[in-house]
Write a protein that binds this DNA or RNA. Structure first.
Lengths: 108, 108
DNA sequence: ATGCTTAATCGTAAAAATACGATTTAAGTT
DNA sequence: AACTTAAATCGTATTTTTACGATTAAGCAT
């Protein structure tokens, strides 16, 4: 029960791919850059910053939320999004592990 | 002439998303892990290691090659794939820059 | 309660990704 | 030259992603 969907790949492979996929669209990269740079976390201003419709941005936000990289706090009529530090650091660590696993070019 | 396709996003955003997208599938993560770990770079053995057909693996390899992360050297009848150190380090740096740009949670 | 603003969801269309078998191309062998 | 092996490409089906407008829901004003 509750198997992780794909048993073809290791958990690490699926997790890494999941995070990477979330970063795999320039709009989502832009959103994360925005959230990372702003002192206060922004809300629907994200929509104004992106060349996309409100519903599309909302969809991208949802995807980022699904992988845990961001979270949203309801703030009056609007919603305040921000980076989830823990997930952020975990994603960072996973990617770093992959990238650090290649040392020197022993061939080619 | 030769504009970079999407002017909606910055070059960095597109590049980052491009690399991330390449990492956004467990099969490609598995391939990179393999290439990173093996002393000698492997060839079609990749096919044997993955739960996918030869043609599908070839497609994944092509994608990784397209973003530059790997390159293939013809070695007799087979092809020897390996990680491209320079592109690898650039990708690593780009991702690190993004992940390091978020310091501390000033809100939420 | 009514209206206004903000954001999520729905429905849907179009494009891209994924996967496979079959075929082709290339490099060695015999 | 004919054969074998390895890998790329082709054609195609299926699924997923991306994007939008329209609608709904939620929160705050008046």
């Amino acid at each position: 029960m509750g198997a992780t969907k794909t048993q073809k790949y290791t958990e690490i492979q699926n997790e890494l791919a999941g995070v990477a996929k979330a970063l795999g669209h320039p709009a989502r990269v832009a959103i994360l850059q925005l959230l990372a740079s702003k002192q206060s976390c922004i809300c629907g201003d994200i929509v104004d910053e992106l060349p996309l419709s409100q519903s599309t941005v909302s969809q991208h936000l949802k995807e980022l939320k699904n992988v845990g990289l961001i979270k949203g706090n309801i703030d009056g009529p609007s919603v305040c999004y921000c980076i989830d530090l823990e997930a952020w650091n975990q994603a960072k660590a996973k990617l770093a592990t992959l990238f650090d696993s290649y040392k020197d070019p022993s061939c080619c």
